[in-house]
Computed example of a mutant assay.
Amino acid sequence: MGTTRRTLLTGITAAATAAALPLSAANAAVPKPRIYSCAEWGARPPSSAVTVVKNRPNKIIVHHTAFPNVTDFSLAYAFQNSRDIQDLHMDGNGWLDSGQHFTNSRGGYLTEGRHRSLEMLTGGTRMIQGAHCVGQNSQAIGIENDGSYHTGEPVPAAQWESLIAFCAYVCQQYRIPATEIYGHKDFNNTLCPGGIWDRLPELRAAVAARL
């Protein structure tokens, strides 16, 4: 059967409507991973209100914490690590909260970093301003991977798999191409994220495959 003008117009209207909806309202191809909220891991309240940026981020920036490479891969340790990072960022750096948006433990557990980052990610249309990369804090989602990977030690399999799954979900929610995944050293003079930076082509390819 030939395409009628009404059918064509209906299709265009439906496509335009779908494009206007946040991805959380669509049938998501990438499942949402388990992300533990600030309340779940016992975060301190921020010292002042976090800033909501009224646009989507355009990239992901991957970090490592440069903390010791622990062998405790438990959820309890992931929660303690999140508290340690927040204490360092607030008490040592003088920031209002954790600088990164999310943290990925060596055991592959994902936790919310800066307050309200999970809320914004779920909505898919706005982001929280971070403090993880100079010049990029209002346009990039920052993901801390616990550990020191500038020493040549490999990333644990659980952490790597979690990073792939999480980056794919972030890309889906915010409509970020998999090509827009970077390391901290791409923008600032730092060793971060160590050996993870060398694996960014692999990470981008794995994320693209899931999308």
Rank of each mutant, 00 (worst) to 15 (best):
G2I: 13
G2H: 09
T3N: 02
R5Q: 10
R5E: 10
R6H: 10
L8V: 09
L9G: 00
T10A: 09
T10L: 11
G11Y: 06
I12G: 00
A14M: 04
A15I: 01
A16M: 13
T17V: 06
T17L: 11
T17Q: 08
T17M: 06
A19Y: 02
A19S: 14
A20V: 05
L21M: 15
L23W: 05
S24D: 14
N27G: 07
N27F: 02
N27K: 05
A28W: 00
A28H: 03
V30S: 04
P31W: 01
K32F: 02
K32G: 06
Y36N: 09
S37Q: 04
S37W: 03
C38K: 07
A39L: 10
E40I: 06
E40W: 01
A43N: 06
A43I: 11
P45H: 12
A49M: 04
V50L: 01
V50E: 07
V50C: 07
T51P: 05
T51V: 15
V53T: 04
V53A: 10
K54R: 15
N55E: 13
P57M: 08
P57D: 07
K59F: 03
K59Y: 05
I60P: 09
I60H: 11
I61V: 15
H63N: 11
H63C: 08
A66M: 10
T71M: 09
D72I: 13
S74N: 08
S74L: 06
L75F: 02
A78W: 00
F79C: 02
S82D: 08
R83C: 01
I85D: 13
M90H: 01
D91H: 04
D91K: 13
G92D: 12
G92L: 09
G92S: 07
L96M: 11
L96N: 08
D97L: 02
S98T: 15
G99H: 03
H101G: 13
T103C: 12
S105G: 07
T111Q: 08
T111Y: 03
G113K: 09
R114D: 00
R116E: 14
S117D: 04
L121I: 13
M127Y: 08
I128T: 08
I128Y: 00
Q129Y: 00
V134C: 07
Q139A: 12
I141E: 07
I141A: 10
G142R: 01
E144C: 05
E144L: 12
N145Y: 06
D146A: 05
G147V: 02
T151S: 14
G152H: 13
V155P: 00
A158C: 03
Q159Y: 02
W160V: 04
L163N: 02
I164W: 09
A165F: 01
F166W: 08
V170R: 10
V170K: 10
C171N: 13
I176G: 03
P177I: 04
A178W: 14
T179G: 14
Y182H: 15
G183N: 12
H184K: 14
K185Q: 15
N189S: 15
L191R: 10
P193C: 03
D198V: 05
L200E: 12
L200H: 11
R204D: 09
R204H: 09
R204G: 09
A205P: 04
A206S: 15
V207H: 12
V207A: 04
L211H: 11
